[in-house]
């Protein structure tokens, strides 16, 4: 199918984009990488009266270190993150998750801001943002505000972004150098959306677990932070039993749906399996980091 007609704007500055958004409100769609929006348009599942194409807003494309944080402009391509030495060094979890996003030709266009704003719960980036306690910077006509990832994802494909706001930046605080990370997922085919994915960052010393952060993708209407499972790890340590109990808890915390690819039961089961695998691999990586 072919897209329905729409007015098209390609602003070159953020202010211009925001003014257009203010003008059209809900009738407009912001076009970033287009890897989710364009299929919706092509299937005629979306009929915006205008597209505001922000691909020429150069000020939104950057990846830099600032005050100990890594700040990524919303228009930064997934491909740029994949080949960024800074991302690989400072945000290895984000880097690993990036290689799981679709395929390279998708990542050429797909942006970090677009992926977060689209808020597909099965996508990798929302879960990574959640588990790394990222801050999202949103800009609207009234100015900028910043919101933690945990408050950003509201429900299925729904975020705290107001209709006249644009995500402009994502800020990550790198985990301590001693911590390990892992993004484990199961998809039907290479490059597909995960049936379930689990992201973990843990900081261990022997069997002791100093901090643990865990989140699941594809297991509910939003990415889900697995705090009660984290608590078990910190309390019981990364012993076989601690890991097993944390994984079992994770399976209780998620709220998956059934679809043609997997039942809710199977997704719960996978959450348990992948949580355990993520903890184990993160722990191994943490040990390698220290060695």
């Amino acid at each position: 199918m072919k897209p329905p007609p729409f007015a098209y704007h390609a602003p070159t500055h953020l202010d211009e984009a925001l003014a257009l958004l203010e003008r059209y409100g809900d009738d407009a769609k912001v076009l970033a990488g287009g890897q989710s929006l364009m299929p919706l348009l092509n299937f005629r599942l979306s009929y915006p009266s205008a597209l505001i194409d922000i691909n020429r807003v150069a000020e939104l494309s950057y990846l830099r270190q600032e005050n100990g944080q890594v700040c990524i402009g919303a228009l930064t391509r997934q491909r740029t993150i994949e080949f960024s030495e800074l991302a690989r060094r400072q945000l290895p979890l984000l880097h690993e998750a990036t290689t799981l996003v679709g395929h390279l030709p998708i990542r050429t266009r797909g942006t970090i801001g677009g992926s977060l704003a689209h808020a597909d719960p099965a996508a990798e980036y929302p879960t990574v943002a959640l588990v790394l306690d990222a801050e999202l910077v949103l800009q609207g006509p009234g100015g900028r505000r910043s919101i933690p990832a945990e408050e950003f994802f509201v429900s299925y494909l729904t975020t705290a972004l107001a209709p006249n706001e644009i995500v402009t930046e994502i800020r990550f605080s790198p985990a301590p150098r001693t911590s390990g990370w892992a993004f484990e997922e199961v998809a039907r085919r290479h490059g597909d959306f995960a049936l379930v994915g689990v992201a973990g960052v843990i900081d261990t010393e022997g069997e002791q677990c100093r901090t643990a952060r865990l989140a699941a993708a594809g297991a509910g209407p939003t990415p889900i932070r697995l705090r009660a499972a984290e608590d078990i790890l910190v309390r019981e340590g990364v012993t076989e039993q601690g890991i097993q109990r944390a994984a079992a808890k994770a399976a209780e915390l998620v709220e998956p749906d059934s679809d043609i690819h997997a039942s809710a039961d199977f997704r719960r089961h996978l959450t348990e399996v992948l949580t355990r695998r993520a903890i184990q691999r993160a722990r191994e990586r943490g040990q390698e980091q220290r060695a």
Binding site: Y8, A10, M38
Partner: peptide, 10 residues
């Protein structure tokens, strides 16, 4: 890149 997921104007 996918040329079906880009507009010609882009």
């Amino acid at each position: 890149a996918r040329s079906c997921l880009m507009l010609a104007v882009q």
